[in-house]
Computed example of a mutant assay.
Amino acid sequence: MTHSPRTHSPAPRWRALLALLAGLTLGFTSLPARAADEVRLLKAHSSVGSRYGQVWQDVSYTLLVKNMAYEKFVYVYQKEPDGTWVNLPGSYVGPASNGYEVWQVTRQYTSWGTTPEATRDLEFVPRIVVGGTSYWDNNWGANYHLGRNDGPLLKNTNVLVAGSYWRDTGHLDVSVDVQNLAYSKSVTVVYTLDNWATQAEAPAQYVPSYTYGYSYIQSPNAKGVERWSAHIPVPTTGGPLRFYVRYQVNGQTYWDSNFGQDYVHATPAP
């Protein structure tokens, strides 16, 4: 069976062409292999927004990919509404720890334009191709599933920063997604303005529901992911703000430190 990938990628033209050719011939030349650590799903997100009669679906996949070779082709193999499957090429985001890289696939399906596309529940499998061999994260043969407006799905992690931004008041808002492992839990943002010579903590609060663009997400959602939010009061002087997240539940502690690199924000101008 031959599967044709879509060809949206920020890579240079010659690399994009190679990726297209590789995707077109995967069914004939690649040797299937089951992934152990070569590719892992970290997060998937899907939401449906609507405004002024227009409807759209935002989809993103975040993958951890083992850096086995410079030349690699990273995809999410996704089922379409008509039952066919397509390869959605990924884009390199940056390094992770222990020889891994972060890659991401993003798509938006809109109800307008010359080729409107319907919203859809998602069934998908991350894959990479290295040296003619395919490696899959197929969720132990079950594939991954995510409802069209479920919001986030976390895999291979129990806590992950969803986003952060400065408010006009001078506060930094940090949104955190956690697996709902127990009712009693503690989520804390630990931060510094002097490269960890000193540090402070901002306790996060549970968020029962929230908006993502023009979509509404319940917390916890269908995948057992809760949203928490912390507010960091930051002075307008000092070095860049660095932070990580500590999640304590069931006597265990989990961390998101951006793969040991911290999350970093420049302090806003006064």
Rank of each mutant, 00 (worst) to 15 (best):
N143H: 11
H3W: 12
W14S: 08
V161F: 03
R127A: 09
G49Y: 05
E201H: 04
L64A: 12
V207S: 04
N158H: 09
H231G: 05
L17E: 09
A11C: 09
T115M: 14
M68A: 12
V129R: 07
Y183I: 13
Q78G: 12
N156I: 06
S184C: 03
G238E: 02
T62M: 09
G27F: 03
L181C: 14
W166R: 05
V225I: 10
R167N: 12
L24I: 03
Y212N: 12
P12I: 06
G113E: 15
E201A: 05
P126A: 01
P116H: 08
W136V: 15
W196N: 00
K66I: 04
P268R: 04
L21W: 15
L18V: 08
E80W: 06
Y254A: 13
Q252P: 05
L160V: 02
E226I: 01
S209R: 14
F28W: 02
S219C: 07
I232R: 07
S111N: 02
G170C: 08
L63A: 01
N67K: 14
T62L: 03
T133M: 12
A35K: 10
Q104N: 10
K79G: 02
F124I: 00
E101T: 15
G141M: 06
V76T: 13
P10H: 14
E71I: 13
W103T: 15
V59T: 02
P268C: 12
P81Y: 01
N258Y: 14
G132T: 11
V76A: 03
N258W: 10
Y206W: 10
T25M: 06
T62C: 14
M1F: 05
L42Q: 10
E123H: 10
T62W: 05
W56N: 05
D173I: 08
K155N: 04
K155V: 07
R242M: 03
Q252I: 11
L20R: 03
P203H: 04
N67I: 00
S229A: 05
N180C: 07
V102Q: 13
G147F: 05
V48F: 10
W140P: 01
Q252V: 08
E38W: 02
V187A: 05
Y212V: 04
T236A: 09
Q104E: 07
L24H: 15
A266E: 09
Y77H: 08
W136Q: 13
Y214M: 09
A16H: 10
V159L: 12
W85L: 09
A197S: 15
P81A: 14
V125Y: 01
S9D: 09
P240C: 05
Y52W: 04
Y210H: 13
Y216M: 07
